[in-house]
């Protein structure tokens, strides 16, 4: 015999989860929903920042075969520590900083592996290719730039990539690296010097470097 019951009175309990973009551009609502464990908020969070994170990672690491895993690592780390984020206005800067940390850890891990495995090492980087370029040497030059970046010291490589390839402003670079504005300015200046010294060793970059007096005003 079935028991039966009637449900009549509305009662507000848990946050209602509705599909679609109910967050709009409201980062505060998104943050609240993320902290409540709303999977749609997680989805929206990803949609909003995934391309930016992919760019940040690719600027630092180059075209990397593990990019999807690194994006995933970034978002998982962000989601795991979302409760620490107080100010929803800082969401983009905060996840950018996490992405930089993920990229930095990845490079360090691979450096350790290379040291450990000597001859046997994987090449995670894929070549960049500009189809039908105006300058026939551009693809060689891009390969050379990738090599130069790979040889730069880690922190210089990060600030250089964020500043001159992704073209973040100085404040954003400082926030992404977790250092002060003054520190990041000094670091960028040193990174320019290191890049220039390494680039001059490549024939296809030396001429370009000769025409480059200064990167830009700060």
């Amino acid at each position: 015999m079935h028991s039966s019951m009637r449900i009549s009175q509305p009662r507000t309990l848990t946050p209602i989860v509705l599909p679609g973009d109910r967050f709009g551009d409201d980062d505060a609502a998104l943050l609240r929903a993320l902290k409540a464990g709303d999977i749609h908020a997680a989805s929206r969070f990803y949609e909003r920042y995934a391309n930016h994170i992919a760019r940040v990672l690719t600027r630092i690491l180059g075209p990397d075969r593990e990019l999807a895993d690194l994006i995933n690592d970034t978002f998982c780390a962000a989601y795991a520590s979302i409760h620490r984020l107080k100010d929803s206005d800082k969401m983009k800067a905060w996840i950018t900083k996490i992405a930089v940390h993920v990229a930095r850890s990845c490079i360090r891990k691979r450096q350790r592996r290379r040291a450990l495995w000597f001859r046997y090492e994987s090449d995670y980087s894929e070549p960049l290719h500009v189809p039908e370029p105006e300058d026939p040497d551009v693809n060689d030059a891009l390969s050379a730039v990738q090599m130069v970046l790979a040889k730069m010291s880690l922190e210089h490589r990060i600030v250089f990539s964020l500043r001159f390839i992704e073209q973040l402003d100085l404040t954003a670079v400082a926030e992404a690296c977790g250092v002060s504005l003054a520190t990041v300015k000094r670091r960028i200046q040193r990174a320019e010097g290191e890049f220039a010294a390494l680039a001059r060793k490549h024939d296809c970059l030396a001429e370009r470097m000769a025409r480059t007096e200064k990167w830009e005003s700060r």
Binding site: R59, H129, L142, F164, I165, E166, A199, R211
Partner: peptide
């Protein structure tokens, strides 16, 4: 020239 190259790198990436 170098900034132009880096811009092309950004597009290629």
């Amino acid at each position: 020239k170098m900034k132009s190259l880096l811009a092309q790198m950004r597009l290629a990436q």
